[in-house]
């Protein structure tokens, strides 16, 4: 995989249940924190052109505001219709300098 830019998230820490959007190389990425852990997904529903960050985050589930598909923020997995595909997931790392998100797709 090509080394891609790691982008510092302009937050040292998010509170639980909070989400923000960061621009990494022109791609909008949603970063959220649930139960103390950070997760990052492409900020785009897999169903239509809709930012997921405008939806609601409850527990590990994010609700698309347009037609209500649900996604698991830990995996990007699509949990309910009308979307059928999962959403791309990204790597988030926390270090002493802050929070970093990288375009490299997280390996399982």
């Amino acid at each position: 995989m090509i080394e891609s830019e790691k982008r510092r998230v302009p937050y040292r820490a998010l509170s639980n249940g909070q989400m923000i959007v960061v621009d990494v190389e022109g791609e909008a990425i949603l970063v959220c924190r649930v139960e103390g852990r950070y997760h990052a997904l492409r900020d785009l529903c897999s169903h239509a052109d809709q930012a997921l960050s405008e939806g609601r985050l409850r527990g590990h589930t994010i609700y698309c505001p347009l037609h209500g598909s649900r996604f698991d923020v830990r995996t990007g997995e699509c949990l309910s219709p009308p979307a059928t595909f999962s959403v791309k997931r990204f790597l988030v790392e926390e270090s002493d300098e802050g929070l970093f998100v990288s375009r490299a797709r997280e390996e399982d």
Binding site: E54, G55, R56, R58, Y63, C64, P65, L66, H67, G68, S69, R70, S80, P81, P82
Partner: peptide
């Protein structure tokens, strides 16, 4: 109008 059994939406948009 909604195809899920539960959730939250900003508006009810028919798919």
């Amino acid at each position: 109008v909604v195809v899920n059994d539960h959730g939250w939406v900003k508006n009810f948009v028919c798919p």
